[in-house]
């Protein structure tokens, strides 16, 4: 790791709030680094200190102990304007005035660069237009923020950080309150930005999306942060250790969380086509069937594709039932295999 590639480092950081008697500590002994061009996902339960950590990184809040360096400069020693030219921030709650348009919002990104009255030069305007185009919201430039979707608003906020032209972008829960496609949309946008040289750190509750897109995960647990690539954290069981419960377990093949299986019935499944096999198994397991090796005494489910149609077939003793959907199969075999 070349020293010059480290854009942000936390050294012996203690994060929390000053209290009269004893400080309320959320995170302690945090030593972390971010490399230029990485997408880092910060994960942790509510109240674990995600937002507070991010607020410390942009110096909205002071550390209780330790320091944070941006490219070898302690952020405490940076002028607010210099900091604003290097680190952009999107907070979790979006506040805006009803009449604000997308372009007006994005223009605010030029704030640290404009003169005392905030006049935009033609260079500023070019950067604003570029940001709008890069994020793909140039069509919405004249729309009011109150009239576009949550996902579009989040994109406008990200476009603002682009106009701010900072090497590092910090986002607090950019995917909260978004529908699933928008979550993927935002994350792939952030991922693309890092491929173009930006460094991005964001917090999220969407664990499997974070595992899929991030170069690095910061995982908060017990006042410490585990860091590593998503895959490392799965392989060394950090993720399953923290998030698994008696109800939920991590599928170590996919990174998805699944209901912990509590089988009371078993059957066998035969299918040549992998994805049909996968989804049929999924449905049977959810219904409480353990999938076992073929055995004459147990029911056999087989799946076949015939033209456009998929046929599910259950053979049990003398019965031979055919279904055209998983739903029909499950409702009909409800409670029939013991």
């Amino acid at each position: 790791m070349k020293e010059s590639e480290i854009i942000l480092s936390l050294n012996q950081a203690k994060i929390g709030y000053h209290r009269k008697n004893n400080d309320f500590v959320l995170l302690d002994q945090v030593n972390l680094k971010i490399i230029t061009g990485e997408l880092t996902g910060l994960i942790g339960r509510n109240g674990s200190g995600k937002s507070t950590l991010l607020r410390c990184i942009i110096y909205l809040q002071e550390l209780l102990h330790g320091d944070i360096h941006f490219r070898n400069i302690n952020i405490m020693n940076m002028h607010p304007n210099e900091l604003a030219q290097n680190i952009a921030y999107v907070s979790s709650g979006l506040e805006y005035t009803e009449t604000m348009t997308v372009r007006e919002l994005v223009s605010l990104g030029r704030f640290p660069y404009t003169n005392w009255i905030g006049r935009l030069t033609s260079a500023d305007i070019d950067l604003i237009e570029e940001a709008l185009v890069n994020i793909g919201i140039d069509q919405l430039a004249k729309s009011k923020l109150s009239e576009i979707s949550d996902g579009e608003r989040q994109k406008a906020m990200i476009a603002r950080t682009l106009a701010q032209n900072t090497p590092l972008i910090v986002l607090d829960e950019p995917t909260a309150f978004l529908d699933l496609p928008s979550k993927y949309d935002i994350l792939s946008l952030l991922h693309d930005l890092t491929r173009k040289g930006k460094t991005v750190i964001y917090s999220t509750h969407d664990l499997n999306i974070a595992l899929r897109f991030s170069d690095k995960i910061w995982l908060i647990n017990n006042k410490t942060i585990h860091d590593g690539s998503p895959e490392d954290l799965i392989l060394d069981k950090t993720i399953s250790g923290i998030f698994e419960s008696d109800k939920i377990q991590l599928n170590e093949m996919t990174g998805d969380f699944e209901l912990r299986k509590n089988y009371n019935k078993s059957l066998s499944l035969k299918c040549e086509i992998p994805y049909l096999y996968y989804w049929t198994r999924q449905s049977l397991q959810r219904s409480g069937y353990e999938i076992v090796e073929y055995n004459k005494s147990l029911p056999l489910v087989s799946v076949e594709q015939k033209g456009d149609k998929i046929i599910w077939n259950i053979q049990r003793f003398n019965e031979n039932l055919y279904f055209e959907s998983i739903y029909d199969m499950l409702t009909s075999c409800h409670g029939f295999a013991e």
Binding site: A84, Y89, G93, E95
Partner: peptide, 14 residues
């Protein structure tokens, strides 16, 4: 202009 985005954003803009 910037304060309209809320206190945190305003501070982060310097």
């Amino acid at each position: 202009n910037a304060v309209q985005l809320g206190e945190s954003h305003a501070k982060s803009l310097g």
